[in-house]
């Protein structure tokens, strides 16, 4: 079951990253990871390096933009920001997730999910 959970998380990583960036505002990779840990209550134990391919993929898709900045430590760091497209994608994913969550909740809880409008 461990692998199944991993696949489950991987499938939602893009949405998780967008949500964390939306909450945190402009942030670099480490700060995004910290935001994910904080907001999930430490529930997601993902290798931190995994965040970077997701960030690059989302940037290529136009959902994020990024710039180099210099940190107080003097090191260069890449700071990511959600684009309007990223905002829209996150809104869409929230709607889909809510429908999906309702459906699973209905299955597991024995209650019927809310009827979707025709």
């Amino acid at each position: 079951m461990q692998g199944m959970e991993g696949e489950m998380l991987k499938g939602h990583l893009d949405m998780i990253v967008l949500a964390a960036l939306s909450a945190a505002g402009p942030a670099h990779g480490y700060a995004i990871i910290e935001e994910i840990k904080r907001r999930s209550g430490g529930a997601f134990d993902l290798p931190e390096g995994t965040i970077y391919p997701a960030l690059h993929r989302l940037e290529q898709a136009g959902l994020l933009k990024s710039i180099w900045m210099t940190a107080d430590s003097g090191r260069r760091r890449r700071v990511y920001t959600l684009t309007r497209g990223g905002d829209r994608a996150l809104v869409e994913q929230r709607v889909v997730w809510k429908q999906f969550s309702d459906a699973i909740g209905g299955l597991l809880g024995g209650t019927r999910p809310r009827e979707r409008p025709a």
Partner: peptide, 25 residues
């Protein structure tokens, strides 16, 4: 979310409550 909904549903249905976090590893 949709393509993996099946996997997610199966994992939810099969998973017993457990304390350890979700993991990629």
């Amino acid at each position: 979310i949709r393509p993996i909904a099946g996997n997610f549903a199966v994992s939810l249905c099969c998973a017993a409550p457990r304390p350890q976090p979700l993991s990629f590893r």
